[in-house]
Simulated scan of single mutants.
Amino acid sequence: MSFTKLSTSALAILAISATAAAARDEIRRVGSSTVFPYTQAVAEQFANKTSFPSPIVESTGTGGGMQIFCGGIGEDFADITGASRAMKASEYELCVSNGVTDITEAQIGSDGLSMAISRDNDFDWDLSLAEIYLALGAQVPVDGEWADNPYTSWAQIDARLPDVAIEVLGPPPTSGTRDAFVELAMNVGCEELDFVKDGGFDGDWVEENCSRMRTDGPFIEAGENDNLIVQRLQSDPNAMGIFGYSFVFENLDTLKAVKIDGVEPEMDTIADGSYPVSRPLFFYIKNAHRGVIPGFEEFLEEYMSEDALAPGGYLSERGLVALSDERRDELRERVANSVNMPAKQ
């Protein structure tokens, strides 16, 4: 399938921006640390198959990538950004305010937000979302009141858990992984607490009161580089980490996943939704740079190929959970035709 067709709006912007954008020879990708290894793998394939320069692939976090991507059109601004959540309305508004108005949204597959621990830790970890919230939430129920989190060991949360200090390394607020973890694990876990269920608190209360990670030590912001979290877990048998499934998948020799509500993150459990903390993964294309940045169309064609995206493709070998055949065909058609995403509300 050809990837050279451009929308009318993209062509119009190209006429304006061609001079500014053409000065850069390399494709530039920013964004999510979770999507980073997938784009890096595509970049390697692209560089090996073509004579174009190897793309610049940066891990800036989802939020940081959106700021760069939406900053404007031209050589100073990225062509593509990876995201471990959908673009927010405020980010879309930033794009529009800077003239980035023709964007294609591409969901490349799914991922399971995982907690993992060293294989040197011999406990069979299985946590409920409520227990995860009690370990990491800034405030929790204490003697019938909503108060600062007093828990310092897992055994204080439930006697069946080991009496070891709570130490969980995770992403910073700029990360899409952090956003997704708060929404899918923290908020849902908070809703499962008897204090919240019996108190009749609604979703707005939960979002306002259950979205802050504690800052008194047990939760440690470890930056955007998930490989550093992996290294820390490998050296500390009682520390846990939060990251995308691919980082567990790629380090199964030294790490093991923590089950959540009895379900382990695996390709099948993420794909069928039985793993409770699953999410879609995206990248966003700046259509004004298509046909201007050398090799951009060919790079997108490689990214959309069955070799990359199909079950058993080289991205699934790195932990990406593939879309269905029908959804991959729809995705490929949307990217090929530079379909502009709808405005975010």
Rank of each mutant, 00 (worst) to 15 (best):
T4I: 11
K5L: 12
S9W: 04
A10R: 00
I16A: 13
R24M: 02
S33A: 10
V35C: 06
F36M: 07
Y38G: 02
Q40P: 10
A41G: 08
E44M: 09
F52D: 00
I56K: 12
V57C: 09
V57Y: 03
T62E: 07
G74N: 03
S84V: 09
R85T: 15
A86V: 07
M87C: 07
S90L: 06
L94M: 14
D102Q: 11
D102S: 09
I108F: 02
G109K: 00
D111I: 14
L113Q: 02
L127G: 00
L127E: 01
E131R: 11
Y133V: 02
V142Y: 12
G144N: 07
A155W: 04
P162C: 01
V164I: 13
G176T: 09
L184H: 15
E192C: 04
L193I: 10
G199A: 08
D204S: 13
V206Q: 03
E207I: 10
R212D: 04
T215Y: 10
P218L: 10
E221V: 06
N227L: 15
N227S: 12
L228S: 12
V230P: 00
T254E: 15
V258G: 02
V263K: 00
V263A: 02
E266F: 03
S278R: 14
L281K: 01
F282S: 02
F283E: 01
V292I: 15
E301P: 10
G312W: 10
G319Q: 05
R328G: 00
R332L: 11
S338W: 13
N340C: 09
P342S: 14
